[in-house]
Design a protein around this nucleic acid. Sequence first.
DNA 1: TGAGATTTGTGAACTTCGTCACAGCAATGC
DNA 2: GCATTGCTGTGACGAAGTTCACAAATCTCA
Lengths: 214, 214
Amino acid sequence: MMNGVTIASKTVGRLSLYRRLLESSIPCGREHVFSHELALLACVTPAQVRRDLMSTGCSGSPGKGYRTKDLIDGISKVLDYPEVQRVALVGVGNLGRAILSYFSGRRPNLRITASFDTDPQKTGRVINGCRCHPMSELTAVLGRESIATAILAVPAARAQETTDLLVASGIHGILNYAPVPLRVPEGVFLEERDMTMSLETVAFFARRAALERK
Amino acid sequence: MMNGVTIASKTVGRLSLYRRLLESSIPCGREHVFSHELALLACVTPAQVRRDLMSTGCSGSPGKGYRTKDLIDGISKVLDYPEVQRVALVGVGNLGRAILSYFSGRRPNLRITASFDTDPQKTGRVINGCRCHPMSELTAVLGRESIATAILAVPAARAQETTDLLVASGIHGILNYAPVPLRVPEGVFLEERDMTMSLETVAFFARRAALERK
DNA sequence: TGAGATTTGTGAACTTCGTCACAGCAATGC
DNA sequence: GCATTGCTGTGACGAAGTTCACAAATCTCA
């Protein structure tokens, strides 16, 4: 690791959640929060919250809780890059557009600034506030904008070749919505979000729970 | 548990993946597969594959591997309901429509057969091959079609109330794409798929990996 | 100021998930 | 038929993630 501190990937995800909750769901007047209040909002245990916050260096005081502002700043110091961190989206189909419209203007510090597609109908246009480039420009655009993070939403058949291209172009983190597992070299962080796997898992346990109830 | 066998949720997800790979990526002539071949396709270790397959009851023979057909049947016996299992989608926005078009006609045994939305522009119409009902009909439709599984893709502000309604209407499994954690009673299986958390996690580790490389 | 109530910070236990490594067995070659 | 090869099935181990539980710290109120 670059600096001495390691931080678990699940913790990073929850920190992002805590920050959102602090910004949106804590009544404005409140200057302090307790771990059990955040826990309730985040649907985790208070111990989990405290454990996660340890890795930000924030500390609260017994009896009073954590200063809301300190938490937001502390979490941001861990999660945010000093400058804007740009993200690329590859594949501007139904899902790609949903992702674009979902993220547009959400966090000023983390922005999808470039998208790519093979379809000439789409390339050259601005879709959901984001310019769509042809795949041929991928390497150049990623380099120019120093993009290290990509969201992949292309058809299964194209997923691996696209990944290889992304990696060769300097991408170090991929969020994969294509329904195939990706092969990436060491040093590239990969998060798989296969909807089929998710749905089939939920369906399996739903069935089971429904049967149990009978 | 209803029957004696417990099965880990991650294993269920991977079994679904193995089946897809067996159906699509194994050259038709091949009657047998080795665990290391499946492992390569699924991007996991051979030991993981064998471990997962244990819970299906399938067994292979040393030197020859697993019979492809046995595996597909064995996995299906675990994952599939004898009848069609119906799924509901709540929230037919950008993401909802992407989900619908993604799943339409994919697995005959697991089908999204009803969708719901508050927007009167959408209700009453068939969108991406799926009838969209007003929320007021939710309980009735889920009951009539005996639906126990739901995909949630509504705005954050509506997510918890919608969940409560789903649970009250007999849902036992929820796949949540709304960007808030849901509170569900025991006995309801919940899978959270918050895109913001995922993206922020990937961005964090991408940045870290990129810095390390310098 | 001191007693009591409450919450933090964290070592230790526990749970879950994945990997190792090897005994045992089917197939093949000699 | 015996030795060899190479893969399966699984007990044991290890890593990651979560919860427990309690000492130490702060606040409240008399």
